[in-house]
Design a protein around this nucleic acid. Structure first.
Lengths: 207, 207, 207, 207
DNA sequence: TATGAATGAGGATTCATTCAT
DNA sequence: CATGAATGAATCCTCATTCAT
């Protein structure tokens, strides 16, 4: 059944396979320490095959970053689908942020690679920001403003600096990147404490 | 006056100079892409000299990480010196955290290197955590508990998860690492919004 | 009309097309730097097709050399057709030599390839010598001897070393190979001066 | 005694040794087929050493060409030292040309490399032309003009096209490059026949 | 101490050749 | 016949490390 792939199908699949394999290698070793041959070996092909699809290691890296960033295209749609009061929507938004950022290994490692290699590959950064972070911040700002308008939230500086609201998700991501398995944290409690803190800080009439 | 350094003093200074130079190179290029020769050139010496003090590039890297982590030894003392109500002390603590983490280029870049190279140099992580993060978290927890005990803060989950309180400092650090000059942020407003949010969330009787 | 080629004709044409394309590539880049794929691309086919007709790059090169040498088969006939006094025939012979050697781009480039690759492909040399140079030298010798016998030329060493008589044609060829467009030379004047010099040197009673 | 070379002496010698070794390899295999490692091995060092002195194979090749062209600087001086009648001086000049061009293996092989690689390394050509060929041609022209002026030579087109006078030296060079040992030629007779032909063609009153 | 020439293992990239479609 | 995906040997070049001076 595996061998049923026609040549054309196999060829169409190759770039994806290579990018998936490359991502794993780059995550594990970083750009400079990754060998193209190891990327190939992970797929069971030889380095020549990788060069059939990507002209240089550089190009492979950039394509890999784009490949992993791609799935964020739908974040905006997910946000638009949120329903309920502003605090309900904000709560759901934060959970969504945790899911997509701290909760998803690929996203986490993408952040690591951006931090590690961003200075040598400047254009890998902005794509991610535009596709993922910016919509999240926009939504936070909009929800707070609407909550203030409806009297659900009191006036607060947070609407102008929505970053402070999603900081804990970033923090948890970094924590998991740095400590991996050592120093594990109770994530559910962490998230709940964070949402509590934020809503207590925003609500006009806390519980 | 500079030439007044005795030979012995000069000798004692060398390792520090090398580590400072190495830090800059490692920050700029990452571990794998840094050449020992470039570290030496930054100092105006040749690579042989570096090998006189550090047996391998690996050892140089680890020593560099230790060297940059060292100044955190006094964080605990600074924390102990904080005075005032719990909210005052917490506010000062957060400002201190911003200063030392987001505000200090070396600390920021140290975090980047830990994220980038941590998996290949596991022991560069914990030192930093023990010297810097842990005391900060311990203090946050203690202040909140004391504030709850005194009635200044209401009961909250944050005491058990003090990470959520310092998240914004981590977030700002990451932001600055990723965007450098592009996408600058109004740091003062950011910090103020953060402290507001936290205190609003914690105080039993917000303003 | 071009489409009228039967399949069999098309098939018979392929090897020639490949050899023509190969010649251009080898001339442009030399043996080692020429890629089989580029030869194929010049024809609009893929490298697999080239390997259908020639088993290795080496074989392709040798076949190419033979292919380009082939047209010299008729030099001998052209020489036999020369008419007139010995000086007339010698003059015509030199013009013929210039035409075929210096004047023909393919022959010129063939000489370049022989010089460049001859040591690695010894057998590409002699074919050319036998088909082209030897008849030319034989004719020069014969014409001089006949001219001496008839009193038209005076006795001279040139009959034993006919190479000196055709040297200028070789020289012009080399000149054109080396300088291409830069340093162009007035070829007509060059040829005329050469023939003058030779005939002045040979004639018993110059002009 | 061989080991008596101080480090500085050895270092000063290295570039020359490398260029000598490189010349032999390039002559034997051509640019593309020469491996930097083989150049090094010829010297008993490793490729790293070659890269210590020349940054790329390209640069090594260009430097090698310059190195071999250098000794021609004195051709002009040798020409100026020629004495006697114009036919004497012309005869000596041709002998000199044979010596330096056809007679010197390095010069011969330099010509081969220029023909083989000239299109990819355009600047290796002109240097040689200016240093060697141009002075030779200038001298031929001057000698003929002076001979005509003094009545020693008759008026002839050769003064305007001095190339035809030195052609046989070029021809002999090419002959030796192509045939190496096979098809050897009686060089002394060749040279004598050439000089005879030229002087017979030029002299107002041939012997 | 400091230098920097030399080493050689390692990794990116190319390309002749094969072969399933 | 023709294709072009895949292979892997070959080669350029880099750089951590050594060591004689």
């Amino acid at each position: 059944m595996e061998k049923k792939l026609s040549r054309a199908e196999q060829k169409a699949r190759r770039p994806h396979e290579i990018l998936d394999a490359a991502f794993e290698e780059f995550v594990e070793k970083g750009y400079a320490a990754t060998r193209v041959e190891d990327v190939a070996a992970r797929l069971g092909v030889t380095k020549g095959t990788v060069y059939l699809y990507f002209p240089t290691k550089d190009a492979l890296f950039e394509a890999t970053m784009g490949h992993v960033s791609a799935p964020f295209q739908d974040v905006r749609a997910s946000i638009d689908a949120l329903r309920g009061s502003q605090s309900d929507r904000l709560r759901q938004l934060l959970v969504l942020g945790y899911d997509k950022l701290a909760g998803d290994r690929k996203t986490r490692e993408l952040l690591r690679l951006q931090l590690a290699e961003g200075s040598r590959f400047p254009n890998i950064i902005d794509r991610h920001y535009g596709a993922f972070i910016a919509p999240l911040l926009d939504a936070v700002r909009a929800f707070i403003e609407q909550g203030v308008a409806s009297g659900e939230f009191h006036q607060s500086a947070a609407a102008n600096t929505p970053e402070v609201v999603i900081s804990s998700a970033v923090h948890l991501t970094i924590w998991k990147l740095i400590f991996a398995d050592r120093n594990p944290i109770d994530e559910a409690a962490f998230i709940e404490a964070h949402i509590d803190l934020v809503l207590n800080g925003l609500l006009a009439h806390p519980r």
